[in-house]
Write a protein that binds this DNA or RNA. Structure first.
Lengths: 344, 344
DNA sequence: TTGAAAGCGCTAACAA
DNA sequence: TTGTTAGCGCTTTCAA
């Protein structure tokens, strides 16, 4: 234990070099575990670095080596648990590597996405993971020009810049519609978020209505919300819709939280579920497991998406050749207690 | 529109300089809006940069200027909504500045905290916002040596390295105990998370039991969980506890999610709430608003904490003198429908 | 196994 | 208003 005076100027390799009597170059080697260094020299350097409390300057290191161990992860929001879950998957997959995720938030705004992307690319990350497959031409141009692995996640319906990991939301919408029709529901209401820029919700809705149309049906009522507590909004929208369209026999929610709110409301109102009224949400959030009844939903495996995406970046950062990888996960319907009228 | 060939090598200032016929230095000035540049030169540079698709290299810029517009935000988890909420507050407060949050996750592990901190400090950020006030001596040493604004958040009970923004969890525990006692509850059970390293939960519990002790009472049963769906766990733990200790008349949960699970369970079981059985959670999560009954809780204003912390970092990064700021927010009891037996 | 020199791409400081 | 020079702190490369 040495009683060093706290430094005014950040410590540099040179300080460690002087304190240990070893050249800067060799100090650098020790600190990075590169090249052959004798055990004794090594120990001297390590001791000096520890005693001084030296923290390497990655900025200088990155500039000199043009290697940056950062992976940019760009998501629309942190308030929707879906994205922190993806992040958790990314973080998990990167755990064993020397890569570090760096998060940027776009608030679902294309212009902000451009800004965040520009900002992150200016740090020359080893890869980019970005939510969604819809981007401005400027953004796509930046991604292409960056010449690093780019993984677009969540959605596979479209033309990716490079790699893509996600589900087909159009297909998810179709599958749910099929499941609902199969149970004989015909008076279907849709409840979603007021978000013109949520392309995934839009695609699900398109897939959903498309399948209904094939059966000669259409959504008979719709309701959208924005802001506020999703659970509460689900409740309120459900009440409004059932009051307005009492014939409805199925409620399809664009996310599980509003679905859960709706379910709680319908149970309180004493609806026979799913005999008189069926419900389904979307995402498969953990929360549903604690509800009095299991809301039907579709699991989108967000964590797995994060893992796969990070895996692609890590592999290529590690030197593997690649490009244009495509991983389409199959969304799994979870029947729960709110969809099956006919026992199989 | 020029049809440029995609670059093999990342573009540099020099490329823009050559393309525009303006010196590198002046290009740099234009791109950073520094110093006086004639409108015509400015335009030439901007055009060239746009046409080439130039993205500045912040690594080189940071090295040359020793200015890094990154703020490290270190949190234990992304799976607990509390922390994304803090992050959202940080992001919001940083929106107007040129600072950017960078997130690191510690998984509640001190050794990982050290690692993440080391990693982030090696990028020489403009400030650090870190959850909690308990850190290893190594971590504290690094924070002190970094010689940048450090804001410890969430918890004010302890000795901060520098600035601190949060609530007193000990006080929060005491306040809730007082509120419960005031309503005449005496057979109190506690349900929490199995997390020896969650210092804030521990402090709340200490404050809570301390106040009970003054009234000659103690918690008559306890139950802890780890992992899994909090809502579901709340349900299960509540059932277990009520089966085991049927005399219990109050359940104090260490977070709102398990509290919500418990509330749903108790309602299903037909308990008279809060006549026969009272409940309270902690945090004031938005979700509660959608429940059939409002769980009593204590709002911890996570977003505000994030905002305040980011504000301190931004102010000091902007040149304001400071150090040792202390912002203690007062947790607000939300009585809800599960705590008040005696009408006021 | 170790060291010396050169330079990564930018910006501070100064000169013109 | 614009340009020149000299680094920022590290790593690459090459020599010893």
């Amino acid at each position: 234990m040495s009683d060093t005076i706290p430094p005014r100027r950040p410590l540099t390799l040179r300080d460690v070099s002087e304190a240990s009597g070893v050249s800067e170059m060799t100090v650098s080697r020790v600190l990075r575990n590169r090249g052959d260094v004798s055990a004794s020299t090594r120990q001297k350097v390590l001791n000096a670095a520890r005693d001084l409390g030296y923290v390497p300057n990655k900025i200088a290191g990155a500039l000199a080596s043009s290697r940056v161990n950062l992976v940019a992860v760009i998501i629309p929001s942190l308030s929707n648990m879906v994205f922190p879950e993806v992040l958790a998957g990314v973080a998990e997959a990167l755990e064993g590597t020397d890569l570090q995720p760096v998060v940027g938030v776009t608030s679902y705004r294309p212009e902000k996405e451009e800004k965040v992307l520009y900002e992150m690319l200016s740090w020359r990350p080893s890869g980019v993971i970005v939510a969604g497959i819809e981007h401005s031409e400027t953004a796509r141009q930046m991604l292409r020009a960056a010449d690093i692995p780019v993984v677009e996640i969540m959605d596979v319906d479209g033309e990716p810049v490079d790699a893509v990991v996600g589900i087909s939301h159009r297909k998810a919408g179709r599958r749910m519609a099929e499941a609902i029709l199969k149970q004989g529901f015909e008076q279907i209401g849709f409840l979603g978020t007021q978000m013109p820029l949520d392309h995934r919700a839009r695609k699900r809705f398109e897939g959903f209505t498309e399948t209904l149309a094939k059966a000669g049906l259409e959504v008979i009522d719709q309701e959208f919300y924005s802001g506020g507590s999703a659970l509460l909004k689900g409740r309120e929208m459900t009440q409004a819709m059932l009051d307005r369209s009492p014939d409805i026999d199925f409620l399809y929610y664009s996310n599980d939280l509003i679905g859960a709110g709706g379910l709680l409301y319908c149970m309180e109102q004493g609806y026979d579920i799913p005999g008189r009224l069926g419900l389904a949400g979307f995402n498969g959030v953990e929360l549903l497991q604690g509800l009095p009844r299991q809301l039907a939903t579709m699991d989108t495996e967000r964590k797995q998406i994060g893992r796969e995406a990070a895996g692609i970046v890590a592999a290529r950062a590690g030197g593997a050749v690649g490009g244009g990888e495509r991983v389409e996960l199959e969304p799994k319907i979870s029947i729960g207690d709110t969809l099956r009228r006919y026992k199989p």
